[in-house]
Nucleic acid binder design. Structure first.
Lengths: 200, 200
DNA sequence: TCAATTATTGGACAGTGTACAGTTTAACCA
DNA sequence: TGGTTAAACTGTACACTGTCCAATAATTGA
């Protein structure tokens, strides 16, 4: 650790580098191990240095969560049922890829960052194409989001629970899809323009 | 605050009093305001005193969560669909009565205390009566729990979201029931002994 | 009545997020 | 090229957190 820097000497710090590092620390040390100081230490930098690139710990975590949502694939169709199933499934897969983040999403009830907003609007567009708009659309969206994050938490969490480990990821993922289809069926059934019967 | 106590003088502290007080602090000051010191201050006691009745902050919060689950009413029937609907609805209502706790349930993925265990076993019994046992029963239970807590979070959370406040609690509660029935329908349909058609 | 246990305190420690005031570097404009 | 300005980074420090330790008073039981 001989490479101490005098005040003023640049370290080449970057908002992205900090986010990446925070993600690494989180996955290696868990949520309790994620501190400004631990991130700074791993970057070989004084804790305060982070504040030149990040507003604070809360927004760091917020940014972290929203950053990951950038991995969610946009749906490749404008057909409501298929599009919604695609976007939710992609979200579910992204969450499974970052198990450590899932409890954070739950505690903060999602994310309000740019990526979250973008995905949210895509969902509203799809719902609108199904004839669902206004408050009902907002609600349907929240149902889908809660279901997806909740299910990811179920798939992901508490490996200490003996009963859980008996269930394979695949089984749970399959159940995610069937439950999602139940929800979509129910949501889209409230629409005025009914869908063609076999669209699900 | 003249009533300082010398070391050794009893304050009549109680585990239950501490839990109740912690709940009050939580609902008034939010999760960030819930500290050992704030609870102790409100009880007119030194922070360390709490450690004679509670193992630490983590278990305090755990106990708090499980304590509230004691309010959930046991189902008044052994008929699976009705019983499950009763127990989940009661849980949902209890959660709505304690909105501040909901994010904590989410972050900790439920509760592992005695009350949680009792309720969980009642659910398994009901599922068993419907011919669902083993891993499928575990999974069905988790689906129901995640759905219920998740929906409570949706009903409860983020009053800052302008769109949300347009939806009344009643509308959301009604939606909880319909979604719950979808899930029950789907879960119980996987059973071998089919239910009589109109049992839902 | 005396001993043992328990509840409570003051004081302290390590760790947290973050503000402040400096120092160096890089960027920009003459 | 040189001088000015803005930004990156540091050391130090503060208020706050959860929790341990040793001392003390009250309670309990024999």
């Amino acid at each position: 650790m001989g490479d101490t820097r005098a005040p003023g000497q640049r370290a080449g710090l970057t908002r992205d580098a900090i986010l990446r590092c925070a993600r690494d620390v989180l996955s290696e040390q868990g949520i309790d191990g994620l501190t400004m100081r631990s991130v700074a230490r791993r970057l070989g930098v004084a804790p305060n240095s982070l504040y030149s690139h990040v507003a604070g710990k809360d927004t760091l975590v917020d940014d972290l969560l929203d950053d990951v949502l950038g991995e969610v694939a946009e749906p490749r169709t404008t057909e409501p049922a298929a599009g919604l199933r695609q976007i939710m499934t992609s979200t579910y897969e992204v969450l499974l890829r970052h198990p450590d983040l899932v409890p954070l999403y739950l505690a903060r009830q999602g994310s309000r960052g740019g990526n979250a907003q973008r995905l949210g609007e895509i969902m509203l567009d799809l719902l609108d194409a199904a004839g669902i708009a206004g408050p009902e659309a907002q609600e349907a969206r929240r149902v889908l989001i809660v279901y997806t994050i909740g299910f990811a938490a179920m798939t992901t969490g508490s490996t200490s629970d003996a009963a859980t480990s008996l269930l394979s990821r695949d089984v749970l993922a399959a159940n995610f899809t069937t439950g999602l289809d139940w929800l979509l069926e129910g949501i889209l059934a409230t629409s005025d323009n009914q869908l063609p019967p076999h669209s699900l």
